[in-house]
Simulated assay, not measured.
Amino acid sequence: MKKLSITWQGVEDPTGYLFSLAKSLSAAVQNSPYAELAEDIVATSGFAFRMWLSADLCPSATSIWSWDDQKKWVESGGLLCDYVGRYWGQEDQEEPQRLKAIELIKESIDRGVAAISWDIGVPEWGLIIGYDDAAQAFSTLSITGETAEMPYSVLGKRELPLLSVLTLTGRSDKSPEAIRTDTLKLAVSHLKGEESCENAKGLEVYPVLLKHYEEEGGYGASWNAEYFLGTYGALKKYAYKYFEKVELPELADLYRSVYKAWQEAFTLKKNEDASTPEVRRKIAALLHTAYEKEQEAVGLMASLTAS
């Protein structure tokens, strides 16, 4: 078994619900020759700004978007990648794509970099951190923190039988200035709803989520609501920290306020009874604040990238 020594330690996750792909990406970069990009990549790939939400708050909404876009999004942040995917209705591609993914994973681990893969322990993204040709098995690190072995033969054929493997192959010569500009463009594109997704996306998420706190009979008291508040709240922190780093203070201030509102809403949902009108009103007020600030941020980002 060739195995890398990797844990989730060092990846900032203030709510415990950080989006599994963003968390896996950050951990893979952190334990690579490109470690200085580990925190930035959550923002520069656009994931710090992405939100998806279904009307019934089904957690699967975070997984229903164009997975093939991972490669170009991550490369926008200054890294080079390989990617293999196989989706619904592509059963005829199952075996060739699985074999291709296995080779990419092994090549990545030989370079000392974990591979990012869908559904290697639970149906979320996690890391493949080792392989053993004799046993025909991978060593995996689930988003839950559990390590395990997984046969090569079940890659892409587990609980949700889809294949998605992203590997990091190098660092590009893209300048920090170009990365910053493209990060703003990615953020605006998503928040304005221009990226592919079957559910509410970007700023559209706010009205859909707010209904669950402003109208009777919503799912605002459910664990599902906690999941989304924690998932997107954690991502907002990466946004404001990136803008601080690249010296865009007005955007940093706006996203610091956005993060604070989401974090406080998450804490209220987690620690208090969100079925009561008082708590629902507090959460709704915080989400309204975040909505207003993020709308303002979108306008500012658009103005900064206008030709």
Results as ranks from 00 to 15, higher is better:
residue 2 K to Y: 09
residue 3 K to A: 09
residue 3 K to W: 01
residue 3 K to T: 13
residue 5 S to D: 15
residue 11 V to N: 01
residue 16 G to W: 06
residue 25 L to P: 01
residue 33 P to N: 08
residue 35 A to K: 12
residue 39 E to H: 10
residue 40 D to W: 11
residue 40 D to E: 14
residue 41 I to A: 06
residue 50 R to L: 13
residue 53 L to A: 10
residue 56 D to N: 10
residue 65 W to H: 13
residue 73 W to K: 14
residue 74 V to H: 03
residue 77 G to D: 07
residue 88 W to Q: 14
residue 92 D to Q: 13
residue 93 Q to V: 02
residue 96 P to C: 00
residue 98 R to L: 05
residue 104 L to M: 11
residue 111 R to V: 07
residue 121 G to R: 11
residue 122 V to Y: 12
residue 125 W to G: 06
residue 125 W to M: 15
residue 127 L to R: 02
residue 128 I to Y: 03
residue 129 I to A: 01
residue 129 I to P: 00
residue 129 I to G: 00
residue 130 G to Q: 04
residue 133 D to C: 10
residue 138 F to H: 08
residue 140 T to L: 03
residue 140 T to A: 08
residue 143 I to R: 11
residue 153 S to H: 06
residue 156 G to D: 08
residue 156 G to T: 08
residue 163 L to W: 03
residue 163 L to G: 01
residue 169 T to Q: 06
residue 171 R to E: 12
residue 175 S to G: 04
residue 177 E to P: 07
residue 177 E to H: 11
residue 178 A to Q: 15
residue 179 I to N: 01
residue 179 I to H: 02
residue 179 I to K: 04
residue 187 A to K: 06
residue 194 E to F: 09
residue 199 N to L: 01
residue 201 K to D: 02
residue 208 V to P: 00
residue 210 L to R: 11
residue 215 E to L: 14
residue 215 E to K: 14
residue 218 G to N: 09
residue 221 A to R: 11
residue 228 F to L: 03
residue 235 L to S: 07
residue 240 Y to C: 11
residue 243 F to Q: 05
residue 245 K to P: 02
residue 250 E to N: 13
residue 253 D to C: 12
residue 254 L to M: 08
residue 255 Y to A: 09
residue 258 V to W: 04
residue 262 W to Y: 15
residue 266 F to C: 08
residue 267 T to C: 05
residue 267 T to D: 13
residue 268 L to G: 05
residue 272 E to H: 15
residue 278 E to Q: 14
residue 280 R to H: 06
residue 281 R to L: 13
residue 284 A to F: 03
residue 289 T to P: 04
